[in-house]
Design a protein around this nucleic acid. Structure first.
Ligand code: SF4
Ligand code: SF4
Lengths: 145, 145
DNA sequence: CTTTAATCAGACAAAAAAATCTGTTTATAG
DNA sequence: CTATAAACAGATTTTTTTGTCTGATTAAAG
C-alpha cells in the first residue's frame, strides 16, 4: 500500500512541526526528535541534514548542537517541506499512471481527481507552521501516553 | 516520491478500465492489455490474476482465453479495485505517519486533511466503471499517438 | 491427437525505499 | 587541553516494490 507521502517526507514533516512547536530560536538535537517521535535517529538526522541544505532548517554542530528552523514558522509552508523531500511530481503526474496528460485527451479521472488534487495542493500551500503549533503540541504531548 | 496508488494499483485500474471499455462480455488477453497500455505483460497478468481471486474479473484459460469483467460495469466501483490491490489502509492511517489517531489527540492536519481524504474516498466510491467508459475510450485511442 | 496460445503457480532478479553503521569533524563544557 | 556530544559524510544493509523467468495446466483449432 502507498500513501501520499514517502516515509522520509512524513518524518520530515513531523520533525519540522516538532521544531516549530519548540519555538523559533530553540535548538533541538536529532536524538531528542527521534526519541520523542519514535523515528529512527540516523534516519531523521539524514532528513534534517537535507532540509538544512534546502535552507528550511539551520544546524549547529558540536556539543549542544542540533537543529532549528531557518525562518519564522509563519514563513514556512507545508508544501515547502514536501517539495524539498518528495518533490512536486505527485501534483503533475497521472493518478492512474498514464504516461502523458494532454488536456485534449485526459485520463478518465481527470475531472474528479484533478480538483481534489488542486485542493490538496492549495491546502499544503496555505498551511504554515505557525498555524499548526497548538495542535502539534497537543499531539506530541500525547504521543506515548 | 510516492503517489496515492502503488504501481500495481495504477496498472490494475488501467486494465480494468480497459476491460470495461471493451464491453462486458469481451474476453481480452493479458498480452493485448499489456501492449495497448504499455505495461509489462507478466506484471499485468499477475495483477489480473489477483483481481480474479477477488471476484472482480473472470478468467478463461487456454487458447482464445483471457480476462473479462465479472460484473456489470455499473456494479464495479473504483474503490473495489483499490481495496483489492492496495487495501483501504490509506484512508484510515495518518498522512503524517503518526502511529495512532485518537479523536481527542488528532494530528495537526486532521481537520484539513481529513475532509480531503473523505472527498477522495467518496469519489472512488461513487465512480463506477460504466460512467468512465467514454473517457477511457478517448484516452486509450490516443495513447501512442 | 497435436499444435498452439492462453492462464496460472511460484521462484527469481532488479530497483527503489527505508534504515543502519562507521567514522570524521566540530564545538561546548569541564 | 581533554572529554563529550553533537552534526556530517558516505558506505552498507535490509526490506519492499517492481518486474522477469520457467514451467505446468488448460482449452481451442486444425
Ligand atoms: S488529467 Fe487524467 S491523465 Fe492527466 S493527470 Fe489528471 S488524472 Fe492523470
Ligand atoms: S487525524 Fe491526524 S493523525 Fe489522525 S489520520 Fe487524520 S491526519 Fe493523521
Amino acid at each position: 500500500m502507498t500513501v501520499i507521502f514517502s516515509k522520509k517526507c512524513e518524518y520530515g514533516l513531523q520533525a519540522v512541526l516538532y521544531l516549530s512547536a519548540k519555538g523559533i530560536g530553540e535548538i533541538v538535537s536529532a536524538d531528542e526528535i527521534a526519541k520523542k517521535l519514535n523515528i529512527p535517529k540516523e534516519f531523521v538526522s539524514k532528513i534534517l541534514q537535507s532540509l538544512t541544505e534546502s535552507g528550511l532548517v539551520n544546524s549547529k554542530k558540536g556539543k549542544a548542537g542540533g537543529f532549528s528552523l531557518a525562518k519564522e514558522p509563519s514563513k514556512i509552508r507545508l508544501i515547502d517541506i514536501v517539495a524539498a523531500i518528495d518533490g512536486l511530481g505527485m501534483f503533475n503526474t497521472c493518478v492512474l499512471g498514464f504516461p502523458s496528460c494532454s488536456p485534449d485527451h485526459p485520463c478518465p479521472l481527470h475531472e474528479k481527481w484533478g480538483s481534489l488534487r488542486s485542493s490538496t495542493y492549495n491546502m499544503l500551500t496555505e498551511q504554515t507552521l505557525d498555524e499548526l503549533k497548538e495542535k502539534t503540541l497537543n499531539k506530541i504531548a500525547h504521543l506515548e501516553a
